[in-house]
Design a protein around this nucleic acid. Sequence first.
DNA 1: TATCCTTACGGAATTCGTAAGCATG
DNA 2: CATGCTTACGAATTCCGTAAGGATA
Lengths: 313, 313
Amino acid sequence: MNFQQLKSVVEAVKSGYNLTEVAKNLNTSQPGVSRQILELEDELGVDLFARSGKRLTGLSNAGVRLLPVIEQILVGAQNLKRGGEDLQNLNEGTLSVGATHTQARYVLPHVVRDFRERFPNVSLHLHQGSPTQIAEMITQGVVDIGIATEVLAQQKDVIVLDSYRWTHSVVVPKKHKLAKTKELTLKDIASYPIITYQVGYTGRAHIDAAFKAASVEPDIVLTAMDADVIKTYVELGLGVGIIASVAWDDDRDRSLALLDSGHLFPVNTTRIGFSRSHWLTGFALGFIETFVPTLTKEKIMEEINRQSRSERA
Amino acid sequence: MNFQQLKSVVEAVKSGYNLTEVAKNLNTSQPGVSRQILELEDELGVDLFARSGKRLTGLSNAGVRLLPVIEQILVGAQNLKRGGEDLQNLNEGTLSVGATHTQARYVLPHVVRDFRERFPNVSLHLHQGSPTQIAEMITQGVVDIGIATEVLAQQKDVIVLDSYRWTHSVVVPKKHKLAKTKELTLKDIASYPIITYQVGYTGRAHIDAAFKAASVEPDIVLTAMDADVIKTYVELGLGVGIIASVAWDDDRDRSLALLDSGHLFPVNTTRIGFSRSHWLTGFALGFIETFVPTLTKEKIMEEINRQSRSERA
DNA sequence: TATCCTTACGGAATTCGTAAGCATG
DNA sequence: CATGCTTACGAATTCCGTAAGGATA
C-alpha cells in the first residue's frame, strides 16, 4: 500500500472513472495508473471499482465503503505535509477563506488588509458562497476557514467560534417618508414593499421571525443574495430595504438613509468555523485573531479543546 | 512520504527513542530506520525528534504536534487493510473484545460460545480490564469492542450502545439470618459488615448512592474487583456480599443464598462501545448482535449514524 | 569503552514509461 | 474503429542491508 495508489483511486473517482484522464491529472502514464489501482485492489483483496469488461464504470460496493477511508488517509498525509510547513514558522503558504457576500464585501476587506500586512508571504484565497456551500467547503477542506452568519455546519468535526453580533437595518431613499419617522416599527416598514435577502442568506430567518412574532405580514417584493443589489433597487424606489447594518457604507450610500432598527430584529451572530480534521496553520489562527481580536491563539485552542471534549448524554 | 517512514517514527516513540530496537521490532536494519526518519524529517522540513548530538532523546515540539497526525494516517492504513479483509466476506480474522471481570466471567461465556459457532474462523481475543482501561483500549484500537457497565468513554469517537440492564443482589451464607428476612432493607444489610466491589467497578457507584440516599452508613470491610473474590469471603463468613445479579451461579454457589434486592439499588446499564475511527468488521457487528440480539446490524448502523450527527448547541 | 546514530557504498528489488495487445461501445 | 484498460518488457531509479565512521554517556 502506498500513497500513489491511494491518490490514483481518489483521482479516478474524481475523473469519472477514466484512467487516461487520471494519468494526465497526476502527471504520469496511463498504464502506471492502471497498475496502481490493480495492485491496491490485489493487496486489499477486493475490487474497488465496478468494471464492464476492462472499462471502469463506477465504484464497487467495497469501493463505496473503502473510499472514505482512503480519502481520510490522504487528508492525513496532507495535514502532515501542511503541518510540517507550518511548524517551520515561516508564515508562508496558502490560506483559503470561505465567506458570504456580506462578509467578503463589507467586513473582510479591513481584515484582509491587516492580515496581509502581518503575513505578507501568505497567499490568500477568498471563496464566496452561500452559508451551506461554505459549510461544505470547510468539511471538504476546500477552505481552511469559513465565515457565515447562518448555522455553520452543526457537523461533528467543525469547530465553530462566535465572532461578532449585529442586527439588520432599514434603508430607504433619503427623501422617503420613513426617513423622518422616529421610533420605527415593523408595521411602519410593512406598509411599504420590502426588499431584502434571500431565504438562507444573511440572517433572513431572523427578519421573517421578527415579522411573524409581531403578526405583521410583510410584502417582500424582491430578494437578493447581497446588500449591493438590495440597495440598488431601493435607490430605484422599488421599496424599503432591510440589510445587515454592517453592509452600510457612508461614502457609497449617500443617496440613502440608514434607519435605526436595532430594536426591531433579533440579533445575529456571525460565526467562524474550521475543520477539526484538517491542519490549522499558525497564520490561520492569525487570520482569526485579526478578524476577532478577542480570539487570541490561546483562546482558540481552549475552545477547540472544549468542543472536542463535548460529551454526549 | 511513505508508510514505512511513518511506522518508523511511531515505533521510535513506542520503543523509547532507540532506533536499534525499532529496527528489531520492524524487522529491518538500524541504518534503514535511521534513514526513514531522516528522510521524513527532511521532507517535512522540521525535526520530529529532539537529539543530543546524534542520539534521540524525545520528541521535538514539532514532533509532539505531528505525531497524532502520523498515528491517524497509520490508523487509516490499518482500517483500509482491515476493511479489505472484511469486505471479502470471508468472516475470518481477529476480533479483540475488552470486558470487565463480571462480563468476562459470567456473561460472555455464552456469547463467546455462540459467536464461535457462528464465526468459526475468527480468532477471538479477550482483554480484561477496568472500565477505564477498557475505554482506553477502545480509543487506542487495542480492542474492537469494549463492554463495561460504567461510563464507557464519553469520548468523541466512541460509539456507545446500551446492551442490558441489571441490578445488584445480596448474597449471604445459606444459614445467615438475613436469608430468612422478607422484604430486605438497606438498614438490614448495613447491620452486617459488607463485602462488595471496588470503587469504579461493576456499578459500585450505584451501591454507594443507594446507601447515601437512604442515609444509611454501610460498613464496607472488603472490596474486590470481582464477584468470585467477594463470594469467597462471604462463604468464609466475613460479611454480607453485594454483587451483580448476573454474577450468581446456581451450580457453583450452593453454599450461598441469593436475596431478592432488585428494589434496593439503582438499575445499572451495561454498555457496549467501539471506536468510530477504527474499522468495524462484519463479524464485530455479529458479535454485538450475538451479545444483544435486539441490536441487529441495521439497528447498529442506525445508531452509529445517529450519534455521528449528534449536534452541538 | 560500549552504545547508538549517521554516512558510504554496492547489489537487489522496485518502479515506471513505452510499446503492444485486447476489449468495449 | 476509436477509446480505454491491461500486459510485457527493459531501463532507470529507488531501496536496503552491510560495513565503516563518529558521537555520547
